[in-house]
Amino acid sequence: MADRSFEVSRLPGFAFTAVTVFLALYLPIFTLVFFSFNAGSVLSVWQGWSLRWYVEAWQNDVVKGAAMRSLLIAASASAIATTLATMAAIGTTRRRRFRGQTAIYAFINQPLMVPEIVTAVALLIFFGVIKSWTGYQGLGYLILAHSAFCVPFAYLPIRARLEGMDLSLETAAADLYASPWQAFRHVTLPLLAPGIAAGAMLAFVISLDDVVITEFVKSAGQDTLPTYMLGQLRRTLTPEVNAISTALLVLTVLLLTAFFLVNRKKD
């Protein structure tokens, strides 16, 4: 008897649709990478192969300052967001279901559903009041803003990891006279580590790439790499922007690849 099981890949036009979608997604990116090796000064007119714009970006002190600032903010925000997300995930999953649990899930993940511009304006007003009270204008505001925005992104993989762990593991450790801290340190944390690493990397990428919240919260002289590139749109664009974008793309791909490898379930 012939196998009549349904397979999407056998539908008419599936291959054409798949190729079209992938071209729409990745052709602009490949074009960006290609023109980052352009020898000429025009953004999208090919004039030969060269590493000129990578060298110029590397020697540009403003670009290096923005890049280091971006990495500092992303690393700090990732650490804070991952710590908060881990505590929230443990508090909402390593126990029996309770009244209001679904509402808490929705509350934690709400920033994912709210338009980012709304979050940015709210943070602008909130930190504006604090700035007027304290006079402090440092990077702390950007770090806190990115941390708040990244918490739900870190929370999702950590919660998913915890939900795949049997709740009886801590109970068994307690039966063997382990204290709550010992059970967490020797049982929960080692099993949870891949989820924490995945959440941290995801939060890092989200923070590194953020433009809207950064643009609203930052003070003068606090440009990150994405906001620096946005500012270049108001000036004469050169293939240096392509080179910087390609470097960010490579970093993001490496982090997302690590995210996939860490979060992949073992056979």
Rank of each mutant, 00 (worst) to 15 (best):
A2I: 00
A2V: 01
R4Y: 00
F6D: 00
F6H: 01
V8R: 13
A18P: 06
V21C: 08
F22I: 13
Y26P: 07
P28S: 09
F30N: 06
V33A: 09
V33Y: 03
F35M: 09
S36H: 06
F37A: 10
A39H: 07
S41G: 12
S41C: 06
V42D: 15
W49N: 08
L51V: 11
R52L: 13
D61T: 12
G65F: 05
A67Y: 09
L71N: 04
L71S: 04
L71P: 05
L72M: 14
I73V: 15
A74V: 02
A74R: 00
A75W: 01
S78G: 10
I80E: 06
A81C: 11
A81V: 06
L84H: 11
A85P: 05
M87W: 13
A88I: 11
A89C: 09
G91R: 05
R94N: 03
R95A: 04
G100M: 04
Q101G: 01
A103Y: 12
A106S: 14
F107H: 07
Q110M: 15
L112K: 10
L112G: 02
V114P: 06
E116D: 09
E116N: 11
A120T: 01
A120W: 00
L123A: 10
L123M: 15
L124W: 13
S132R: 15
S132D: 14
W133S: 09
T134S: 15
Y136L: 12
Q137H: 14
G138W: 03
Y141C: 03
I143V: 15
I143Q: 03
A145C: 07
H146R: 03
A148G: 13
F149L: 11
V151P: 03
P152Y: 04
P152T: 03
P152N: 05
F153V: 10
Y155G: 00
I158H: 00
I158Y: 02
R161A: 11
R161K: 14
E163I: 13
G164L: 08
D166I: 05
D166E: 11
L167H: 12
A172T: 11
S179K: 08
P180S: 12
P180Q: 13
W181D: 01
F184K: 00
H186I: 09
V187H: 02
P190L: 08
L192D: 08
P194N: 13
P194K: 10
I196L: 08
A198E: 03
A198D: 05
A198T: 08
M201F: 09
A203C: 07
A203N: 00
I206R: 07
D210T: 07
V211H: 06
V212T: 15
V212P: 07
V212F: 11
V212G: 02
E215M: 15
V217C: 07
V217H: 09
Q222K: 02
D223K: 02
P226H: 08
T227A: 03
Y228N: 04
M229Q: 11
M229E: 06
G231P: 06
Q232S: 13
L233H: 03
A243E: 02
I244Q: 09
S245N: 07
L249P: 03
L251I: 14
L251Y: 09
T252R: 02
T252Y: 04
L255A: 13
L256T: 08
T257H: 10
A258I: 10
L261H: 12
N263D: 15
N263M: 12
R264A: 15
R264H: 14
K266E: 13
